[in-house]
Design a protein around this nucleic acid. Sequence first.
DNA 1: AGCGCTTTTGCAACAAAGCTGCATAAGTGT
DNA 2: ACACTTATGCAGCTTTGTTGCAAAAGCGCT
Lengths: 142, 142
Amino acid sequence: MSNKNKASITELLRASKLSITDTRVKILELFMNTNGALEHSSFEKLAGQSFDRVTVYRTLQTFLDKGIIHSIPTTDTSIRYALCKSDCSEHDHHDHHVHFKCEECGATTCLEDTDVPEIHLPKGYAMHNVDVVVSGVCNQCR
Amino acid sequence: MSNKNKASITELLRASKLSITDTRVKILELFMNTNGALEHSSFEKLAGQSFDRVTVYRTLQTFLDKGIIHSIPTTDTSIRYALCKSDCSEHDHHDHHVHFKCEECGATTCLEDTDVPEIHLPKGYAMHNVDVVVSGVCNQCR
DNA sequence: AGCGCTTTTGCAACAAAGCTGCATAAGTGT
DNA sequence: ACACTTATGCAGCTTTGTTGCAAAAGCGCT
């Protein structure tokens, strides 16, 4: 982890009006070092026993509320989270990229450059958010 | 539940080479009576204690394997299931419609007539399946 | 209808994921 | 450095999902 990233983590937390704690810094470091989505169990594996399960849940929830991370829908029972791009915030959340889940390595990644196409709903439906999850084989696994 | 539906349930099970049991018939009835996706806890609410939790899990897994139902990704911890259209089967599964989750009533429905638009992945990615989940307010809740 | 064989079911026990309340610890502004 | 607020850790609990095994139900055959 470079000093540059450390500094930007501090900045990010401050911008969200969150106090800077070991847990939050560590979890954000993990997100930045991992190019992809993390589920809860990842944190225990990556960070060991260094902090309590409950703290991880609460930290993730806080980050969600502040728009620092977003959740990715899955067909299994765990919830995956990924860092939001810099132009997301608590009240203005635009997360219009495609999520890709690799069937080989299991990793879920955000394809930032793949736009979600426009979807036309039937009459009477109001659209707030669109999640697209593509499954297949990623460029690393072929 | 009409006799017509009862007959078609029997047919459906037979076509999938599954024996016809009370649990399977009852669960399929619940699917047919509910215009939308069901999560596990729904079955306990709708069917009461009439069968064991484990049986429900195993029945749903069997239906998934046979292509009778499909799972819908969610950002919460439970898995939702919906009936597949008649032209799905174990080996030829085409479930190219949009799923809609209403933020008011919480219901998840399949918008059979809303096609999933084509998505162009970056080079090196192979696409097997696309899931689209739109959240917003449904036509019933406005 | 009855018989044997296979498949399903129900039970018990377990594992993982997630939440809540409360006391302690750490961060923040002055 | 101090008081105040916020975050963490612990204990305990709920929900969700799984596995192994014995009993029960469904199915094909006569």
